[in-house]
């Protein structure tokens, strides 16, 4: 938590019932809008990220296509960025949230914005198998 406060001072963090909860604004590039995010982390579980404002949206020109690289991609308005392949080792509990998950949210949001513009996910990643949506 100290590291998050140091690096990302605009996030407000508190611990509620053993869960770290951080809320605050994220502007993915100097030319981007500002999003409000919520990070939740409980030791032993994987960190959860939600974009609380504005809600993630599908492309207006292709409303049938889900947002790439999200959890709950079929539940519109409930999508959450999927930042790493579970079990891939990208994230481990001994890694610092401030140096991994939080900057990854910035990166994910840039690629989300570029996906809106180009219709193409340019941020790399692994596709879910069909039907294994979480």
């Amino acid at each position: 938590m100290a590291q998050i406060r140091l690096r990302w001072p605009h996030l407000t963090c508190q611990i509620r019932n053993g869960t770290l909860v951080c809320d605050g604004p994220v502007q993915p590039t100097a030319a981007s809008r500002t999003y409000t995010i919520r990070l939740q982390y409980r030791v032993g579980l994987e960190p959860r990220i939600r974009i609380t404002k504005p809600r993630l949206e599908r492309r207006t020109s292709a409303p049938d296509q889900p947002i790439p690289h999200t959890y709950d991609s079929t539940r519109q308005g409930r999508e959450r960025p999927c930042l790493f392949f579970p079990g891939s080792g990208d994230w481990r509990s001994d890694k610092s949230l401030a140096a991994t998950v939080i900057p990854w949210v910035y990166e994910w949001l840039v690629f989300y914005e570029l996906w809106h513009i180009t219709g193409e996910w340019l941020g790399g990643g692994i596709e879910h198998d069909q039907g294994s949506d979480k």
Partner: peptide, 14 residues
């Protein structure tokens, strides 16, 4: 100022 260079990551999900 204060920028970090996060390690590469692999977004997952269709």
């Amino acid at each position: 100022r204060k920028a970090v260079r996060p390690p590469p990551f692999t977004p997952y999900g269709s």
